[in-house]
Amino acid sequence: MITVTFTPNLQRHVLSPPRELQADTVANALHQIFAENPALAGYILDDQHRLRKNIAVFIDGTLIQDRNTLSDSLQPSSDVQVLQALSGG
């Protein structure tokens, strides 16, 4: 199973628990989660359904390449982490 976890900083804004699922791409994994939890989508994706510019997604410790359509492939047991890029403030 693929495990998807979200930065704990999201928790105070929107429900975003870890999730286990089966998917072949990051897009597929996230869309499954957003279908169940639509409010979460707007925190991760922008109006054009791209990854928000200060959100980072790692697959097994490697930053994804396709921030626009999230087509990066997953392995059957990949660990997907949705994190926030650091910024000031």
Partner: peptide, 8 residues
């Protein structure tokens, strides 16, 4: 404006 997480 949540910054990382967008406008709400």
């Amino acid at each position: 404006n949540h910054g990382h997480f967008g406008v709400k």
